[in-house]
Amino acid sequence: MTDMTDMTDMGDAEADLPSIKAIGVDGVLVSFGAQLSEAANRAALAFRAAIEAEDMPAVLETATSLTSTYVRFDLAGADHAQLRDKLAAMLGRRDWYQAPLPQGRRLWHVPAVFGTDLAPQLDDAAQLAGLSASDAITAICAQPLRVQTIGFAPGQPYLGELPPEWDIPRQTNLTPRVPEGALAVAIRQMVLFSVSTPTGWRHVGQTALRLFQPDRPDPFVLRPGDEVLFKPVTRAEYENIRQRDDAGGAVSEKLV
């Protein structure tokens, strides 16, 4: 493991990671990767779960990004040095890049229509990935994709990673607006939009899933660490789901 006594800044080299860095007056960021990888995302998710299991009185809030764990703490209960020492000790306990993913995760099965006028950039994205449209759909739906983080809009997941051929860039121009439930792709990730918004990501699929439901006690459907498996459906099946099912046809099961 890297020496935890010299982790004030996140360097460019992976040898400098994991790192601990103060964020604002009452925050600390523990970073596990300078760029996204399965191992860095795994470490961030596992480390957050470990912090919550410690039940440290001074910790008020935790969250994860793609490769980091954020901790907000009560200045009346600890200072930066004390929290840093505690987190450094936790980092030294194990190889977090190989840690098991947190308990309590769910696998979501989500119907999606690909292509058609509902998702008009499937052919463009498939061509950039060197695939036919049908092969692109098969690849996207071949295996569950992890919810790597929630961000940009309420309840909005970043999903991944797709195989290397999907390392395609975002558009240089914005699509003026994609609808709620749009499924878009770029840089080996997929975004499932929780709100209607402009985007530079290519719109390849459309779901009827409402990811942000502010009228519910728990307004977010997905959580970091959950997995999503997309199921291709026809346009007619999608329209039927949208009209009759408030859950957008999504069903879930517990993951071990």
Rank of each mutant, 00 (worst) to 15 (best):
L17E: 08
L17G: 01
P18S: 15
P18T: 09
S19H: 03
S19Y: 02
S19N: 05
S19P: 00
I20M: 13
K21N: 05
K21T: 09
K21E: 13
K21D: 06
K21L: 07
K21A: 13
A22R: 15
A22Q: 14
A22F: 07
A22N: 10
I23R: 03
I23K: 02
G24P: 04
V25H: 02
V25G: 01
D26A: 12
D26M: 13
D26K: 05
G27N: 08
G27E: 11
G27M: 11
G27L: 13
V28S: 07
L29D: 13
V30G: 07
V30I: 15
V30T: 12
V30W: 14
S31M: 06
S31H: 00
S31K: 04
S31I: 05
F32M: 10
F32W: 06
G33M: 08
G33V: 07
G33P: 02
A34I: 09
A34H: 11
Q35E: 12
Q35V: 07
Q35A: 13
S37I: 12
S37P: 11
S37N: 12
E38H: 05
E38F: 02
E38S: 11
E38A: 14
E38K: 09
A39S: 11
A39G: 01
A40L: 15
A40Q: 06
A40P: 06
N41R: 05
N41V: 07
N41A: 06
R42N: 09
A43T: 01
A43F: 04
A43Q: 02
A44T: 00
A44L: 08
L45Q: 09
L45A: 11
L45T: 03
L45W: 08
L45K: 03
A46Y: 00
A46C: 00
F47K: 05
F47V: 01
F47A: 05
R48P: 06
R48H: 07
R48V: 10
A49Y: 12
A49D: 15
A49F: 13
A49T: 13
A50P: 03
A50H: 07
I51C: 15
I51L: 15
E52D: 15
A53N: 07
E54V: 10
E54Y: 02
E54A: 15
M56A: 08
P57S: 12
P57E: 14
P57K: 12
A58N: 09
A58Q: 13
A58S: 14
A58L: 14
A58C: 15
V59C: 09
V59S: 10
L60H: 02
L60I: 04
E61Y: 04
T62L: 11
T62M: 11
T62G: 02
T62E: 03
